[in-house]
Design a protein around this nucleic acid. Sequence first.
RNA 1: GGGGCUGUGGGGUAGCUUGGUAUCCUACGGGCUUUGGGAGCCUGAGACCCCGGUUCAAAUCCGGGCAGCCCCCCCA
Length: 380
Amino acid sequence: MENRKSNFSEWYNEIIDLAGLSDKRYPVKGMNVWLPYGLKIMQHIDTIIRRAVDSRGGMQEVSFPLLITRDQLSVEFEHVAGFENEVFWVTRGGGKQPLEVEMALRPTSEAAMYSMFPLWIRSHSDLPLRIYQIVNVYRYETKHTRSFIRIREIHFFEAHTAHRDYEDAERQMREYIDIWNEITDALCLPPYRIDRRPDWDKFPGAMYTLAFDTVMPGGRTLQIGTIHQYGENFSRNYGIVYDDERGGEHHYVSQTTFGMSERLLAAVIGIHGDDQGLILPPDIAPVQFIVVPIPSDRVDTLSFARDVASRASALGYRVRVDDRDNYTPPGYKYNDWEMRGVPVRIEIGEREVSEGKVTLALRSIRGRRSFPPWARCRRT
RNA sequence: GGGGCUGUGGGGUAGCUUGGUAUCCUACGGGCUUUGGGAGCCUGAGACCCCGGUUCAAAUCCGGGCAGCCCCCCCA
C-alpha cells in the first residue's frame, strides 16, 4: 500500500478500492458505484446526522422530486445564475419527443422546495418551517473528479428552514453549529475551522456563508459542510410570505440552509487512516468486532469464536466471525480486517479456548492484550 | 479555469521507440496438503477503452471520443 503521508492522493485511491468502498470504473464521469462496505459506512454517517438533527426536535425529514422544471429555475436571481453552468438537463422523453418543458436534475433543492413553500406557509403559525432531506443532487463538474470529494452525483444532506424574522433565522444558524459539533464528535474528527466566506465565495444567493473546513494529509483544505443565512433573498424571489398576528400584513420569511455530503466520509478516510488502511470510528464501522478463529486439531476454536460473537452481539455490537476457510493462516485475516478499519479484533486459538480467555487487538493502537472472558466488551 | 500524463485479463505490469506469436506478479475456479501475522504444489479460466484513418497487417503509428491520474485553482 502507498505511504499515506508522502503520497496521500494515491493512498486515498488505493484504500477506497482495496477496502471495497466505491468502484469508480462505472463508465460515467464522476458517478461511482457505492459498494456494500462503503455504503454501510455512509449509512451509519447518515444515522449520526439524523440522530443529531432529530434529537433537537422540530426538524422533519422529507423527500423532494429529482426534477425541476425550467420555470422553477427561471427566476432572475443570482442563485439560479450561480448554478447554470453545472446543471444536467433532461430534454427528451418517450422516444425522441422533445419535452415541452425541459427539466433539470437538481443541483441543490432550493428551487424545488421554494416552489412549495408558498403553498405551505400562510400565516405566522406555520413558522418556523424546518425540513431536511438526504438525497442525491447532480452537478455537471467539468474538472477532475475524485471519489467522495468531487463527483457529479452527490449524496447530499440539506436542511432548509423558514423563519418569521432574521433573529429567529440566526438562532437556527447557531443550532446548526451545535449539530455540527455533535456530528464531528461522533466521527472523531479533529477541531475544525469555521470560516465566514468572503462575498465572492459565498453560496449563490446567500447573505453570508459559514464553511466547516478540515485539513487532509498533504495539507489540502477540504470543505465538508456549509451553513447559509439567506435572509429574505430567496423569499423575495420565490414569493414566500406569511400573515402576522395582526392579520392582513404580509412579511417575507427569513431562511437558512445546512449542507453536507459524502465528503464527511472522505474526511474520515483521510484523517484517521494509516499505512495499514482505514481506521474507522466505532460508531460508523460496519463491523465493530471481528472474531478470528485460529484452526486447531485439538479444540473447537470456531464454536468458541461463535459463542464469543453471539455474546458481543447480544450487547448490541456489530460483530462478525471470520470463518472463511480459504485463507488459512490467520495473518491474512488480521491484515485484511486491519485494512478495512475494524476497531477491535478478537483472536480465538487453542490458548484462548483452553484458558477461557480472549485476546483483543485494537486497530487504533495496534497492540494486543489478553482478557478474562467478556470483561471489557461493555467499555470498548 | 490552467498545465502535464495515462488507458493491455479483476488489480498491478512487460511489449509500443523499430507494426506481424501478448510477458510476468497477484487475485479468481478445481484438487491435494497446510494453519498463532499475508502458506505450498498441481491444474484451469481470464486482456490490448471506443470509433475512424494509414497499412498486406495495428496493443504498437495518426485523428477524434470516452474514462482515469498528477499539480495549481475552486465547489458539498
